[in-house]
């Protein structure tokens, strides 16, 4: 589904953020990407739907080359959902309109169709009563659940999560993770940048560990948690799991 091969990316002439990254996500697979801050994991996931350009290598998404200038990026992006660290709901639109905007403008659905779909997804994330509120009136956890619903409304073939819980107060993290766990159990293809190792051990198939722009470890979940091969991954795990 997602094929990342030999991706290199520089900021400016000298600072390399991604070094020869190669990995893949199969259909129905859940892959967790972790690593210390500044390791390039967010950048990598944003390269998948070309929110970030990269200079070398290639990424193929469902058979379409992402970094081909001829690729219709809006069309491609509409098929992968993305959830951001800071939710990025549109503050000037009501919740239901946040869910409808891209359905109508990108997929060309009628307003009624979009609203019906939106309401169904709001029900799914348990926020039906908030449909007519504005984003700022919701808690962070609720906003992030709306953001997930907004991405799902596009009927994506895969979902990208960029640290979906790291901007949340601790008591709100589980409500968001619950939605993500359900998604994983339904067989959604997911690439998740997160530090939530509980989530990783519960639903991930594979775990990728990144450091300084490199993919240091790319292992089956049991192998990763059982016996990480690299010293850097061991250190990272012990720091994260110690509390």
């Amino acid at each position: 589904m997602i094929e990342i091969s030999h991706v290199n990316k520089w900021y400016g002439p000298t600072f390399q953020v991604l070094k020869d990254c190669t990995t893949s996500v199969a259909k129905g697979e859940v892959v967790v990407v972790c690593g210390p801050s500044g390791s390039g994991k967010s950048t990598l996931i944003k390269c998948v739907n070309a929110l970030e350009p990269f200079q070398e290598g290639q990424i193929i998404l469902d058979g379409i080359k992402v970094n081909d200038p001829k690729t219709d990026l809006p069309k491609l992006r509409a098929r992968v959902g993305m959830v951001f660290q800071h939710f990025e709901l549109f503050p000037h639109l009501r919740i239901i309109d946040n869910l409808c905007l891209a359905q109508e403008k990108v997929l060309g659905r009628s307003h009624e169709e979009a609203v019906a779909k939106g309401n169904k997804l709001l029900e799914r994330v348990g926020l039906t009563v908030h449909a007519n509120k504005y984003p700022a009136e919701l808690s962070g956890g609720q906003q992030q659940r709306v953001a997930i619903a907004r991405a799902l409304a596009m009927d994506p073939i895969a979902m990208l999560f960029d640290e979906p819980t790291s901007a949340l107060d601790p008591e709100m993290i589980s409500e968001v993770l619950d939605v993500m766990v359900d998604l994983a159990h339904e067989g959604m293809t997911m690439m998740v940048v997160t530090h939530e190792m509980g989530f990783a051990s519960k639903v991930a198939h594979r775990v990728i560990f990144m450091d300084k722009g490199e993919i240091v470890e790319d292992a089956q979940k049991t192998d990763f948690f059982g016996s990480p091969r690299s010293e850097r991954a061991q250190k990272f795990l012990s720091k994260i799991l110690s509390h």
Binding site: K46, P74, R77, A78, V80, M82, F84, A102, V106
Partner: peptide
């Protein structure tokens, strides 16, 4: 914030749609 147009394009909105609606 830069995240707003990023979220718009992640949803598949084109540049002009993202400007116009977001």
């Amino acid at each position: 914030s830069k995240g707003q147009p990023a979220a718009a394009s992640a949803l598949g909105l084109t540049y002009s749609q993202s400007m116009r609606y977001v």
